[in-house]
Simulated scan of single mutants.
Amino acid sequence: MSHDTDDTTGEQRPVGSEMEVAPKTSPSKARRRVLTGGLDDESSLRYRAMRSVFRGSIKTAHRPTVTGVTNVPKTGPVIIASNHRSFADSIYLSALAPRRVSFMAKAEYFERRNPINMMVGGFMTAVGAFPVERGSAAAAVKALEVGEEILRAGGVFGIYPEGTRSRDGKIGAGKTGAAELAIRTGATIVPVGLVGTEDVMPVDAKAPQPKTFSITFGKAIPAPPRANPAGPQRRELTEQIMSAIRALVAEAEAERAARRR
Rank of each mutant, 00 (worst) to 15 (best):
T125D: 15
L248A: 06
T65Y: 04
T36S: 15
A173I: 05
E108S: 12
R234K: 14
Q240S: 07
S2K: 12
G169Y: 08
L35C: 02
T185C: 11
S52P: 03
P115G: 04
E18Y: 14
D41G: 05
F103V: 02
F87R: 06
P23M: 10
F110C: 04
V249T: 09
A137V: 08
S166I: 10
A179N: 09
T238M: 03
E236N: 04
N228H: 06
G128S: 00
K142M: 11
I171W: 08
Y47E: 05
A178K: 12
V132Q: 08
K59N: 14
A230Y: 00
K206G: 10
K59E: 15
V53H: 06
R113V: 13
I215H: 07
A61T: 13
N83E: 12
R113S: 15
A257D: 13
E42Y: 10
R165T: 08
I80P: 01
L237V: 06
S102H: 03
S136W: 06
V66S: 04
E148R: 15
L194V: 13
I241N: 03
V190C: 11
A207P: 03
F130I: 14
R100L: 01
Q12T: 03
A95E: 03
V120G: 00
G128F: 00
G68I: 01
S26M: 10
A139E: 15
R256C: 05
G121Y: 10
I171G: 06
G231H: 03
A126L: 01
I171P: 06
T185V: 13
A107W: 05
F54H: 01
P23Y: 05
K175Q: 14
P161V: 07
N71Y: 07
R32F: 07
V200S: 05
E20N: 15
L237A: 01
A30N: 09
A182R: 13
A61C: 11
G147N: 08
I80R: 01
P222L: 10
N114A: 09
P224Y: 03
V203E: 12
H84K: 13
L96P: 02
D41M: 09
E149D: 15
E145C: 01
A105F: 00
V156D: 00
R184I: 02
F217P: 02
A179L: 11
S136T: 15
F54T: 07
R259A: 15
